[in-house]
Design a protein around this nucleic acid. Structure first.
Lengths: 284, 284
DNA sequence: ACACAGCCTGCCCTAAGGGGAGAGTCAAGG
DNA sequence: CCTTGACTCTCCCCTTAGGGCAGGCTGTGT
């Protein structure tokens, strides 16, 4: 049993081996003020540590293990820190870890859903679903039960005609009209589809008996799929999106929408780009 | 419904609003080759995107959401990537996420244990526990049932006497003898303590009938507490460490050790530094 | 013509160190 | 006493996925 002559102290390499902390880390803790060596030779700059500094270093490691940053550890080590403050930081950290835990859990579900899907289809998927928030938006709209999906085009014709007769297109210089259809039915229907054709408004305009101006509500989360191709092939995109929502255990919490990023009256124009949006919430 | 005149394309700001991806991120994806704009004006350097690039951008976002790095996404987007490769990366990612999940779970337990402890003691704890691996080490040792804990000192006397008589201290120039006691009893005992006094060997030495040379086994994980103070006060450190092990739901899987970093024969020397090590494994 | 909004590149910043260069230092052997 | 090899020092650049800003063009509306 020997007392490691304390005149010199422990050199950084030995202290590193003793504590299993890298030399680089020790130097960083010195620089950040978390653990100053017991003595620094003023001539050579050599750091000399003392064994009695090991408890403090271990406290640093323990706090790091709890997920605190070095800066936070600096505060936590400052001794004149009250118990309630300490508790507060711990509870904050607890909430943070719980949240990360939930995120990783969700991520795992998504990875597994993707694996499952690739296994079933045996091919790289054609579409990708992203979650994003939907903003509220001012629109002019007509809602009606129409005989079939493509018939929504006639609603847009009526809508545009009305806007033109109201002098709307004169007010908004560049006619950058963005359109979105809201589908109110749940599930696929062959006929009698409850649809709402909407145009984003950039200026005030008068409604009519059939045309109203209103605000499409915002949604915190929507599962969205952007589809490049003709409307004839959009059903597959719908199926994919619905399967994703199910596999990832979300619930649909509102009518879905079609946002025509590039769109028009043709049915088979492959250059069209449409975003399908389903408002969702994480299933309980 | 309008076709966003395709001659120019969509400027980066509009594309950013459309996709809810920041301009900085879009420029980064361009630079990293993940999403090159449809056209770049050679005179001005302006980036012009096309709506049909949204699906690719969404794929990038979806993969990012699964936890892939931009570099990995670059590989995953490279199209000439076989299905099995894709599956392999996904399964790797799955394992990675599962591991992080387990880590966060453990961290949560540790944070909660610390909260509980601070609540019970109503004070900043005096000791900190760290987990670390223990290396195997060559030692000379005596094991014996001794009347009480302090009596281990006599074993060390005998051990050192033997090493001296074998000419060991002449061989190892600087007498940096590190000592460690292994306690084989489970729980605290008033008397008849099964103890092994060991000295780390730095050279070959002969054993005897009472003294053997052997290897202390390595352990993957040990809960360790470094204690600065006299042996008289070490019991509190033991209690703390054992409580930590219980609260953090570990099992003790081997005899505990005392490593005398700074130590000696005195009982009440406050400058001693001792590390208590309990080999542990995560409880099932 | 002018103003203002939008876009460009380039530089510095993040957390916790890792890697390496170039120079100085320590202890032991010859 | 000198040398050698192992240690140590500081300084600089690197990592992720962008954020923030400066200075200088560019596009559009009035």
């Amino acid at each position: 049993m020997n007392p490691e002559q304390p005149k010199l102290g422990i050199r950084i390499g030995d202290f590193s081996k003793l504590s299993l902390v890298s030399i680089k880390a020790l130097r960083l803790y010195d620089q950040k003020g978390l653990l100053k060596p017991a003595r620094i030779d003023p001539d050579t700059g050599y750091r000399y540590y003392s064994a009695s500094q090991l408890p403090r270093l271990n406290r640093i490691l323990a706090l790091k293990d709890l997920g605190f940053s070095l800066e936070q550890i600096g505060q936590l080590l400052d001794e004149n820190l009250s118990i309630p403050e300490m508790q507060g930081m711990l509870r904050l950290k607890q909430a943070e870890v719980q949240q990360r835990l939930a995120q990783e859990q969700e991520r795992l579900v998504r990875v597994e859903a993707r694996l499952k899907q690739i296994q079933q289809e045996a091919t790289m998927p054609d579409y990708d679903v992203v979650l994003k928030p939907l903003q509220a938006v001012q629109v002019a709209s007509i809602r009606e039960v129409i005989p079939s999906y493509p018939a929504v085009g006639q609603l847009y014709d009526e809508l545009m005609g009305h806007l033109g007769s109201q002098g709307y297109f004169a007010k908004v210089a560049h006619p950058n009209q963005k359109c979105m259809t809201v589908w109110y039915d749940e599930g696929y229907k062959e006929s009698d589809v409850d649809a709402e054709a909407t145009v984003f408004l950039e200026a005030e305009v008068q409604g009519s008996d059939r045309i109203q101006c209103r605000t499409l509500p915002a949604h915190e989360q929507a599962a969205c799929l952007t589809f490049n191709g003709s409307y004839n092939r959009i059903t597959a995109a719908y199926q994919h999106l619905l399967k994703w929502i199910e596999d990832n255990r979300y619930d649909i919490v509102g009518p879905n929408r079609e946002f025509y990023i590039i769109g028009g009256a043709e049915q088979d124009n492959e250059s069209y780009v449409t975003e399908i949006q389903f408002p969702v919430a994480k299933a309980a």
